[in-house]
């Protein structure tokens, strides 16, 4: 049975919930109270993940941390159609990995800004976090604009979205909670609409639903 160490308001856990929903997989959500309990820093949890970070996935004998690593695992293990993380094309795989890592960079900026504004993580320099997030969003917006010019809808080329889209989506969608407006990223805003219309899409607190899937 798949078990997810999970916190409802965490965007990184949301990446995994999205993947599980897209793949229509059952799982057990093991709640870890990030706020106010700081359970992810408890001794008990540090045994599961010494980094003291969510999410962690356990599946039979495997215990896996890091949202991006978990996305790779779930896609390779359970995506029978080989859509979310195709490995036959080395170039594409390289690009997916590049954007997975970019997704984690966004955690470092946008998620940090959100923690500062929402949960009072005053140790973060909020101005600097926001600036970094804007710089990253510019890069993605430019990329997505030219993807559209080439009739590509997703971060990596192809008909279907990949785990790269999942890794980038949550903390972009939650950025405004950290005071990072998305008005200046129209290509990102359009991509978000497309993402929200993927079959199996679910929301989390802070993310609004889009309209009907087909029209």
């Amino acid at each position: 049975m798949i078990e997810l160490y999970d916190y409802e308001l965490s965007g990184n856990c949301y990446k995994i919930r999205l993947m599980l929903s897209f793949l229509k997989l059952d799982y057990v959500s093991k709640k870890v109270e990030f706020h106010p309990g700081k359970e992810h820093k408890s001794e008990k949890f540090l045994e599961i993940n010494p980094l003291g970070q969510l999410p962690v996935l356990s599946d039979t004998n495997l215990v896996l941390r890091d949202a991006q690593a978990i996305l790779v695992y779930l896609a390779r293990k359970y995506d029978k159609k080989n859509i979310w993380c195709p490995i036959d094309d080395p170039e594409k795989l390289g690009l997916i990995a590049q954007w997975l890592s970019f997704g984690d960079l966004i955690t470092g900026s946008s998620s940090a800004a959100r923690l500062h504004d929402t949960l009072f993580y005053t140790e973060f320099d909020i101005g600097e976090c926001r600036e970094r997030a804007h710089a990253q969003f510019r890069i993605l917006d430019e990329h997505l604009f030219f993807q559209e010019q080439l009739n590509q809808s997703w971060i990596c080329d192809g008909e279907k979205p990949t785990i790269a889209d999942i890794a980038c989506f949550p903390y972009i969608a939650l950025s405004e909670e950290g005071g990072i407006s998305r008005m200046s990223y129209p290509a990102i805003r359009r991509w978000m609409d497309r993402f929200k219309r993927i079959d199996g899409f679910i929301v989390m607190p802070g993310v609004f639903p889009a309209g009907p899937r087909s029209f």
Binding site: M183, P186, R190, D193, F215
Partner: peptide, 12 residues
Amino acid sequence: AEVQKRHVFHAQ
């Protein structure tokens, strides 16, 4: 082209 079908564009 930015004002796509079923999208709401944010302008100022």
